[in-house]
Design a protein around this nucleic acid. Structure first.
Ligand SMILES: [Zn+2]
Ligand SMILES: [Zn+2]
Ligand SMILES: [Zn+2]
Ligand SMILES: [Zn+2]
Lengths: 173, 173
DNA sequence: AACAATAACGTTATAACGTAACACTATACA
DNA sequence: TGTATAGTGTTACGTTATAACGTTATTGTT
């Protein structure tokens, strides 16, 4: 008793690019995880965003897209999944989420995060990973994926060209 | 003019060690910040803790110590201050706070955080700081103090000696 | 000492972030 | 076909953090 299709109410998914979808499928297969429509939607929505967004911002976007109310938990579960398989990183210092720029292989979370405009620039550094891993193991500590977040001012937000300091970011070296 | 204390109502501060107090005073003087009794109390209470604690845990401890209700905001303000002057670090991935182990000079936040027992081991690495700073500047990014948190299992919590994996164990604090 | 300016503190209310519990649904596999 | 496992939806709740505003303490100046 639920067959009735109530005249599509703006259900268009954000249309995840085929290449991204394919990569995601492979990643999930390899990890023994299931890539469901709901998860695809969440990922696609995140991919439309240029900057990291909070879970509740994603919630609002998805609600608008799907034309119905969603529970926060829904979004959190999908984010947990996306982070788990490595498609998305959590910026813990900003309590925000952003799609990984090279999800093909697992790696640490390593970002430059602009305190002014919110932009997050993902880096990769084998040397940092190596240093941290070595330091950890030398203390008998078994390390997981490191979280490295460098707050500061991006090039654009440094506009005021004279040496003037911008935001109150302490201790720039 | 100072009103006499009204028959001590368990107001015993946790007695901040004199050396720590002295260091804190110097730090604040240098930074042009005021070290008030309330702030000293918060710091002292944090110093009694072996592991990082949440703001609300600190709130409860201080309420118990002072025998009265406090507002969360009070504690948050004191924590902001302590982090600002460098006496305390925030472990952003655990939403917890811990006293710095060498507050004498400013430095990045760099911890090994056990996902099982919650212990946080503070490291210092000039090389990591240097690498991050260099990478940032090479992109026109003006870096502040980096946040580096490595989750994992501490030596103690690795007890189960067979090679079994243990990462990802939730529920530290 | 009196004053003004600023920083810290207290209080109430509320916003933002995240999870527990439970019932239901889909898929995989014997 | 059953049975086990994983995913989803819903309600309610818990935790973390801040806004707004008025009061008190400190500092520097007259
Ligand atoms: Zn990535
Ligand atoms: Zn910026
Ligand atoms: Zn430190
Ligand atoms: Zn441990």
């Amino acid at each position: 008793m639920k067959a009735r299709k109530t005249a599509t109410r703006r259900l268009r998914a954000p249309s995840l690019p085929a290449a991204a979808l394919h990569r995601a499928e492979q990643l999930c297969t390899k990890a023994g995880e299931r890539l469901t429509p709901a998860r695809i939607n969440a990922y696609a929505e995140l991919l439309t965003q240029k900057n990291p967004i909070s879970a509740y911002e994603l919630l609002a976007l998805m609600e608008q897209r799907e034309g119905r109310k969603l529970a926060p938990l829904t979004v959190y579960r999908q984010l947990d999944f996306l982070v788990r398989v490595g498609l998305v990183h959590k910026l813990t210092s900003a309590q925000a989420y952003v799609a990984c720029e090279h999800p093909d292989h697992p790696h640490d979370t390593l970002y430059l995060v602009c305190s002014s405009c919110g932009k997050a620039d993902e880096l990769e550094s084998e040397r940092v990973a190596e240093l941290l891993s070595k330091a950890a193991r030398s203390r008998g500590f078994k390390p997981g994926k490191a979280i490295v977040e460098v707050p500061g001012l991006c090039q654009t937000c440094r506009q005021p060209p004279d040496g003037a300091d911008g935001i109150g970011v302490a201790g720039a070296r």
